[in-house]
Nucleic acid binder design. Structure first.
Length: 656
DNA sequence: AGTCGAGTTCTTTTT
DNA sequence: GAACTCGACT
């Protein structure tokens, strides 16, 4: 009977090693899979899904939670290839994505409208800034007080760790102890303000999700019954809030958590690998599976990696030693260069050598701790005309012109969203946040009195006469665009809406504002292309806000074969035949700030993640002098210095 | 009161 | 390069 539903016959025993096979075929029930780097974690998860299907579990009864959008996409793609079951049939995505989806349907139970908007970190910060200015006008002017950014960090950390702002201040920001009353107050006002505007920040997507489940027994039960199996990837990087969501959803003891405590690199966002060690207590009957065979790297690289993580003393709970199966080649290189320019030249030269040996550019990745470490390298690459793809700080959807345009759509979709209103209004001459807020209030009052929509009220004389003279013409144009968008909100597709907005006032505006308006219009057109993938406005807008990993690398899209530059955080889960780790010096990696704050162990785990991305060859390098800021002499990173000398090979460039 | 432009400083990691 | 500050201008 169960063979009827089995889409493709898979011989699990033949295609997996014993460790993987045991985890994949674990009985349905709570399970913890401790999978070391390069041990085939994704493969295990993919086959687990296939195995569940073979046991008669339906795709929509499986929930797959990942940490990034990319991971979710890749995983489901592999499942589709393996089983033939299309990816969309599963519930899969980031915690934020799933939270958004559930809240869209059932958020009304906790006071959310269906068309709530999502604000990104920057918008959340400026909203908080406004709240603070309202509650305490002098606060941000005082240099001794934290900036809105820092207050935002404190609040966010508290929310993600399910603790109070007061506790976070006490433990992580003792020098702000005198603000221990104020910050919770800001927090409270901030929550109110968001709710009033029907906007959610990233943390809300998790927090409200949990709240919904906790306060509504029937909804919680429905999901608990629905999901026969919940798979969680990168479990070591979940925070307490996420762990609670999983525990609530998986109360029927059906969670399989997959992770590696040695790769926990998100504690700054509240991740807590204790979630792993206490998992068996919270899920009685948990079976534990260890996968330690590494298929990725050469023994030399693994030996080095094992040594790196061995120095981490905080983390003894589930010690793993990765076992290599590959044959050796050569030890990792550690190269000292004179400065960042020479470091760049070294990489270019070595890349050329690798190409001669038969590697392709796409086999090679350059990894670093922070984006700005790669600045010189970028310049050198451009100069030499070597194609590269960088997943850089500024992401496609975060570019100003994209956000400007989207703010029109967002306001049309949710007219309570003041953040968006202020954004597009501020583009007008002589209009800033204050004037915009005033105009909106005026229009709202008017709409209420005369029982018309806000969009109609915006064109009323009483409002327009408060618009600065120079901005009047543009104002009317915007209002018409908004009205068109609003009228079509229920009926027109997102693609059409984007088109409407581009052809309206905004299209003219950027042509006059930017000299490179051509490429900006191109961006907006690709946004339109992206919109065509969605039928519903709210879905499209949410995706925009949650898909930050979509990058703005239009210059290289043409050539597939190019060098990859990324931060280690973004390289998590990826592998490359050849890896260059740059900036491997104390104060760069580990970062100065991390040393000062005593977070070296997290940096070490991050270093470990970087090292274990490499399959065949690993090059670590550092500049002896940095000219970023005041010139400074750098020493080799302690992560390398503390290693036995015979685990790597030192090279020296330039004069001593 | 609020906007604008010039000049200055400092860059972590992500949903 | 962006985010901030400061002083001038409307």
């Amino acid at each position: 009977m169960d063979t009827l539903l089995q889409p493709k016959a898979i011989n699990f025993k033949d295609e997996l090693n014993e460790e993987q096979y045991n985890a994949v075929t674990a009985p349905i029930g709570p399970a913890l899979v401790l999978a070391g780097a390069g041990s085939g974690k994704t493969r295990t998860l993919t086959y687990r899904v296939a195995w569940l299907l073979s046991q008669g579990v339906q795709p929509w009864e499986i929930l797959l939670l990942t940490f990034t959008n990319k991971a979710a996409r890749e995983m489901l793609e592999r499942v589709e290839n393996l089983t033939g079951v299309p990816a969309y049939k599963f519930w899969g995505g980031t915690f934020h994505h799933i939270g958004q989806k559930v809240l869209r349907f059932q958020g009304d139970r906790i006071g959310l409208e269906r068309n709530f908007n999502i604000v990104d970190a920057g918008e959340a910060e400026s909203l908080l800034g406004e709240v603070i200015r309202d509650a305490d006008p002098g606060f941000l002017k005082d240099k001794n007080n934290p900036k809105a950014r820092v207050v935002s960090d404190i609040i966010s950390y508290a929310r993600n760790t399910c603790s109070s702002c007061a506790e976070v201040v006490k433990e992580k920001y003792p020098y702000y102890n005198h603000l221990i009353e104020k910050i919770p107050l800001f927090h409270e006002k901030y929550q109110e303000r968001k709710r009033k505007q029907q906007v959610l920040d990233y943390d809300d997507l998790l927090e409200c999700f949990l709240q919904l489940l906790e306060e509504n027994e029937d909804i919680a039960q429905a999901y608990q019954e629905r999901f026969k199996s919940i798979l969680v990837d990168e479990y070591q990087d979940t925070n307490l809030l996420q762990a609670k969501i999983i525990d609530t959803l998986g109360v029927k003891h059906r969670v399989m958590a997959v992770g590696d405590d040695a790769q926990c690199i998100y504690t700054w966002r509240g991740a807590d690998f204790e979630n792993i060690s206490t998992f068996p207590e919270r899920h009685p009957g948990t079976l534990i599976y260890k996968i330690e065979t590494n298929y990725r790297s050469t023994p030399e690289i693994l030996n080095f990696a094992n040594g790196v993580i061995d120095q981490d003393v905080t983390n003894e709970s589930y010690k793993k030693i990765l076992k290599a199966v590959r044959r050796g080649k050569q030890k990792p290189y550690f190269v000292a260069t004179v400065d960042t320019r020479q470091q760049a030249q070294f990489i270019l030269k070595r890349v050329q050598g690798l190409l001669d040996e038969g590697y392709r550019l796409s086999d090679i990745a350059v990894l670093y701790r922070a984006h700005f470490h790669a600045m010189d390298l970028q310049m050198e690459l451009s100069k030499q005309g070597l194609p590269y793809q960088i997943t850089s700080g500024v992401r496609f959807f975060e570019q100003a012109h994209v956000k400007d345009l989207v703010s029109l759509l967002r306001f049309a979709s949710n007219p309570l969203d003041e953040v968006s209103f202020i954004r597009f209004s501020s583009m007008l001459p002589k209009v800033g946040a204050r004037t915009a807020a005033k105009l909106l209030k005026l229009a709202r009052d008017l709409a209420k009195d005369e029982k018309v929509s806000v969009f109609k009220a915006l064109e009323n004389d009483k409002v327009t006469k408060k618009v600065p003279e120079v901005a009047k013409e543009a104002w009317i144009d915007i209002v018409y665009t908004l009205q068109d968008l609003y009228d079509g909100m229920g009926s027109i597709a997102p693609e059409k809406a984007v088109e409407l907005a581009i052809n309206g006032w905004y299209g003219d505006y950027i042509r006059n504002l930017y000299t490179n308006w051509r490429s900006r219009v191109d961006d907006l057109e690709s946004l339109q292309g992206f919109a065509s993938r969605y039928d519903e406005m709210t879905e499209f807008l949410s995706q925009l806000m949650l898909l930050s990993s979509e990058t703005s690398d239009r210059s290289v899209e043409l050539s597939e074969d190019c060098l990859r530059l990324t931060t280690i955080h973004q390289a998590k889960g990826l592998e490359f035949p050849v890896v260059f780790l740059i900036g491997v010096a104390d104060n760069l990696f580990p970062l100065k700030r991390a040393i000062e704050e005593g977070n070296v162990d997290e940096e070490r785990r991050l270093f470990y993640v970087g090292v274990t991305r490499a399959k065949d060859e690993l090059y670590m390098s550092y500049p002896r002098v940095t000219t970023q800021g005041p010139p400074e002499l750098l020493k080799p990173s302690r992560f390398v210095a503390e290693m036995p000398k015979d685990t790597y090979e030192s090279l020296y460039m330039g004069e001593r």
